[in-house]
């Protein structure tokens, strides 16, 4: 679905991505695992076009997007749910969801989006209960649901999620990850998932890349990597040994 080849990105003189090759397969969940500062967020920003980058990013059936502005990338349905949620604090839940439609709807658009809204409410009933509440007043888990719901309004061809579990209670994370799997299974939307919680990420993904220092250190099917001693030692730690 997304074929990323030799991707480089820089912050001033610092090379943050040193030639990354990643393949997001259609219909699958692909995850990126790596410690803090490895370059995972930078990679997502490079794909969504919010930072300068070189190399090649080919969207299946839609061509090269490496030289495209973030607006055009969003229009192709590549939707990035950023780290820290970034929901609009002064808009209501419903209005936040509405902003997700702008990529297919146009700036002045007047087409109905009831169908998308209904599906998001079905996926996250909590959002419908809170639809008239302002964004800032939601709990962390609800904000993450809203961020994903807003991306679902955008008719995504690929969904990129940056650390959706960050700062959430285990029970909430569990619920959220069930929804992520549901989105992938029922709607067939390919997902590129960035997680620090490696155990959980390997649990639900099909294929995984281990990123460190701006390059891919290891890749393989998630079930394989789950049992790889190097991965267990570096990323799964005590928990994996307990199993």
């Amino acid at each position: 679905m997304l074929k990323i080849t030799d991707l480089h990105a820089y912050y001033g003189p610092i090379e943050a991505l040193k030639g990354i090759n990643v393949h997001v397969e259609a219909g699958k969940i692909t995850c990126l695992i790596g410690s803090n500062g490895a370059g995972k967020t930078t990679l997502l920003n490079a794909i969504s076009g919010t930072i300068k980058r070189t190399g090649s990013i080919i969207v299946e059936g839609k061509g090269e997007i490496i030289d495209k502005h973030s607006r055009f990338i969003a229009r192709r349905g590549i939707i990035h749910v950023p780290e820290g949620r970034h929901i609009f604090p002064g808009l209501t839940v419903r209005e936040n969801l509405e902003t997700g439609t702008v990529n297919w709807h146009g700036f002045f658009g007047r087409q109905p989006y009831d169908k998308e809204l209904k599906e998001v409410y079905k996926l996250f009933p909590r959002l419908e209960e809170r639809k008239n509440q302002l964004g800032w007043s939601l709990s962390g888990g609800e904000q993450q649901m809203l961020a994903i719901g807003r991306a679902m309004m955008a008719r995504p061809a690929v969904l990129m999620l940056d650390e959706p579990s960050m700062g959430l209670a285990p029970l909430v994370v569990q619920e959220l990850f069930e929804k992520i799997v549901e989105i992938n299974k029922q709607q067939g939307i390919p997902i590129l998932l960035v997680e620090q919680n490696a155990r959980l990420a390997l649990e639900i993904s099909h294929y995984a890349y281990i990123i460190d220092g701006g390059s891919v250190k290891l890749e393989g099917s998630s079930s394989e990597l789950k049992n790889d001693p190097r991965v267990i030692e570096a990323y799964l730690g005590k928990f994996a040994k307990k199993n």
Binding site: T50, S70, R75, P82, I87, E98, N103, F107
Partner: peptide, 18 residues
């Protein structure tokens, strides 16, 4: 409302294609 969104969080607005 798209203008309000862009004013409140430019980065998120750009990711959505505003």
């Amino acid at each position: 409302r798209m203008m309000q969104a862009a004013a409140q969080d430019k980065y998120a607005a750009e990711l959505l294609g505003i």
